[in-house]
Design a binder for these strands. Structure first.
Lengths: 233, 233
DNA sequence: GTGATGAATAAGTCTGACTTTTGATCGAGT
DNA sequence: ACTCGATCAAAAGTCAGACTTATTCATCAC
């Protein structure tokens, strides 16, 4: 998606990463670099580079004389966008989607409150444009257009918060919204209440009403959580 | 600290990572693999592995015929614990500490609320033990002992929330608390009010009072933010 | 000025040999 | 039979060198 298999080691990762995060190799199991290199038909150099990347994500741990051991799930760098993408593509997407949505419901209201104070006029304008775009695509099964503006809206909020850590969650939110739209069924048009809330958040941020922006955003996220409860086991 | 130079490429990263995150190589500047390999007196294979790791952190971008280009700060994987450690060791530690503390103040109250519902008896006991440990080390300049229990306390809260994304912020919080103690001056003993709050949070979680746990934790984090305002420019 | 051609460059890949660490095995001694 | 220690072997780690490929830049024809 964002970084398509650039180089041989990237192609290896595209297969090995999802396999590990999906649990095909249970924690504690060991892989041998040479075997993997043969299996993927690449040289050991390429395989080693792929292992290094997996290691930096804390997905595996390479030890001499033993091999490449898969680390327990609890140690993975689950904030790595690449890892998030792999996991969202796997079997436990529902569970993953819920974890991320809970994170959203903690972060986004706080971000909205900060945005009300720090948003530039340009960001306010962009926010309003996004909200209008959502309204325009909220009827007639235009999910693609709606999603586009929805993602942009939340990106702007997080960026406008002025907090670097919040801003960098833009990619995560984008993955969540995209995954939700593409996989968990959204037959009908988006919830009209949610659309209205986005418009109101844009207004609250523009007028600098931090409390209102925070509360409205909270309503959006609890709505998203509730929607997840309905659509997922 | 956690992963000390395991292998030659690790040693290279220990130097190159901090240098990049500190801004020694401004965004857009290009490094040549061969030159770096000579500079660090390692083979190209080792250097390439190090570059792959930096690339997976989105710190750099390797392109044919041009070299290894440093990416703009806004694209870095700032949730990677390794990156956080490098940045906290660098010049903009104050700014970094503030960003992370704002993140804490968004996440930890929510985590505490969830913990009140999901914490196991063992976790409740551990929480109480940590709070008592903080009390025991809150006087007499026993900052090391206090820090130890403080870190453990917040780790348990985040883990007990039952949310994977929250739980994985334990390392981040640990880095923040450690950095705060070791660098920003804490001449005197910890704020007695904060100590009391921790004890009360442990109690609220134990009794399953989510609202109270959330509010008390919020007080802890706003206290931390305020402390930062006082001690940092 | 524009577009095609070619040369230079740095990353990418592969191979093979060698080193180092470390878990496992086996044997000596009690 | 059990412990301790020496030995062995397996796998990662490292290095050097040759080759491939993509991409930029400069040159040149139109």
């Amino acid at each position: 998606m964002s970084t398509p298999g650039r180089g041989l080691h990237g192609h290896v990762l595209d297969t090995l990463g999802p396999a590990i995060t999906a649990g095909d190799y249970p924690p504690g199991s060991v892989l041998r670099t040479d075997e993997l290199a043969q299996h993927f038909e690449v040289s050991r150099s390429v395989m080693r580079e792929a292992v290094r990347v997996l290691e930096s994500m804390h997905l595996v741990e390479s030890r001499r004389r033993v091999g490449v051991r898969v680390r327990p799930k609890a140690e993975w760098n689950v904030y790595d966008p690449q890892v998030i993408r792999w996991r969202l593509a796997g079997a436990d997407r529902p569970h993953q989607l819920r974890s991320l949505t809970v994170l959203r419901s903690a972060v986004e209201p706080a971000a909205a409150a900060l945005a009300a104070h720090h948003a530039t006029p340009e960001q306010c304008a962009e926010l309003t444009a996004c909200a209008l775009g959502m309204v325009a695509n909220s009827r007639g099964h235009q999910l693609a257009g709606y999603l586009f503006h929805d993602v942009a809206f939340h990106r702007v909020i997080l960026a406008a918060s002025g907090n670097e850590m919040f801003a960098r969650l833009g990619d995560v939110v984008a993955e969540v919204l995209t995954g939700r739209t593409h996989h968990d069924v959204m037959f009908e048009d988006p919830d009209p209440a949610a659309v209205t809330l986005h418009v109101q958040v844009a207004e609250a941020v523009r007028t600098g009403d931090a409390n209102r922006a925070e509360q409205l955003t909270r309503e959006i996220t609890v709505g998203a959580l509730h929607e997840l409860d309905v659509l997922a086991p």
